[in-house]
Nucleic acid binder design. Sequence first.
RNA 1: CGGGGUGUGGCGCAGUUGGCUAGCGCAUCUGGUUUGGGACCAGAGGGUCGUGUGUUCGAGUCACAUCACCCCGACCA
Length: 492
Amino acid sequence: MAKEVTQRSENYSQWYNDLALKADLAEQSAVRGCMVIKPYGYAIWEKMQSVLDGMFKKTGVQNAYFPLFIPKSFFSREAEHVAGFAKECAVVTHHRLMNDPDGKGVVVDPEAKLEEELIVRPTSETIIWSTYKNWIKSWRDLPLLCNQWCNVVRWEMRTRVFLRTAEFLWQEGHTAHATAEEAQAKAEEMVQVYARFAREVMALPVIVGHKSPNERFAGALDTFTIEAMMQDGKALQAGTSHFLGQNFAKSFDVKFTGKDGRDDYVWATSWGVSTRLMGALIMAHGDDNGLVLPPALAPIQVVMVPIYKTQEERDAVVQKLAEVKAGLEALGHAVKIDDRDTLRPGFKFAEWELKGVPLRLAMGARDLAAGTVEIARRDTLEKITMPLEGIEPHISALLGEIQQNIYNKALAFRDANVEKCDDWAEFKEKIQTGKFLLCHWDGTAETEQAIKEETKATIRCIPVDSYVCEEEGRDIYSGKPSHRRVVFAISY
RNA sequence: CGGGGUGUGGCGCAGUUGGCUAGCGCAUCUGGUUUGGGACCAGAGGGUCGUGUGUUCGAGUCACAUCACCCCGACCA
């Protein structure tokens, strides 16, 4: 069962796709553009959910759930927002099937046409705001901080596992506030939550910044983003947080009575991350041997492979490993003993590497006699043999070190591929080689659009916490005056 | 929707100017030997060649139609 994965250097795109599928994370479903997330992949998503959920709760956010179907009329209210999604909506028009009169399976019952079509949510702003209208009366009801974990559907033309699928899982937070300042602060707070999650849990260095007006979420006044660099130098938008102003409140007539007795529209934010983060994980850390999972997200942090010739040896080794496993579990680690006796050790090594397990322990008769164990790190592929005695805290520390090392590696890679650029000819050439270019921009949508058309590069963000560069200069394209540099890159 | 490509056991593919019984690798199953980096040997099962119509003594192969999927664009978390 030689599961050869395409080499990363040869064909990055193919490598990514192979990895997502062969590392047992997901597979193509029968439905066009949709995917099945397999148990191993879902375990990672669940871990992401639980960590994020904890972080949200600390900011006062509560979970809720809103309907999958949204009446079409709800979409008539916020024109700008709707324009952003209208072209990719799935629409429910009927509510019943019937037997085909010609005896060929089932057909849609033409009698069962809905009075008003239902839209499968591409995002929930419209239904949530029409609900919030009923929940918000007074300043005492604010702030209202809700999040929902759900699936959304966007009928994309071209799809890619985890990065762009017709249906995806995500989390969307929607908040309502009494003042613009408070809402603005919330949007910033949440993007910082995402940044912390990306950096500390996913070991993914991200750039926090504002989106340019062109790249903003439909209906937002300001959009914050976390942008990550993949190993081909392309950018991936890993999460966004929007300051929505009073646009939705006005469209859905959500007013509150203030302390002064006067009515005003509420101020809103929304923010989300999706299963796209799974794609980011694969592309940011994976190598030619497969996935490299940060210990904080690995469903299995330590895998143990017993090596034996006889049943007696097997029993003895597995028993010893079980003791170590118990010790590690007591320290809160997820451990698996791979005692499948139909597979050889070499196969198991390769398989667990493909699946990205951070640490592998191998123990055979030799080790048993010597009281040692072989430890292999997934991130560096180093192997060392250590005494078994008191190994647990060492492994704990090693997991922490791996988490840090994966981050450092990704950070070093990114730093090596971020450059300032002030020459248009140079820009056109370098941007194609997978770089983030820090360039002056005159702030106009026209320039941004022209650059996009000529090079496919977009402004990923106007950075606020790394690569911040407030300085006078001239626009890379138009030559007009500029006060700061922004991040340009080709993105997924 | 524009440009290009591919449809043959579960997966990946070969199949000559039409020719006789449709083949290979992987996977699966059985038996045995193995087991410190993706084992080996022997045997077995599994295909209306995407679909339809046509040409022909004869079609996986040729023609026309049709469907599906993939890649490159436009759109996007």
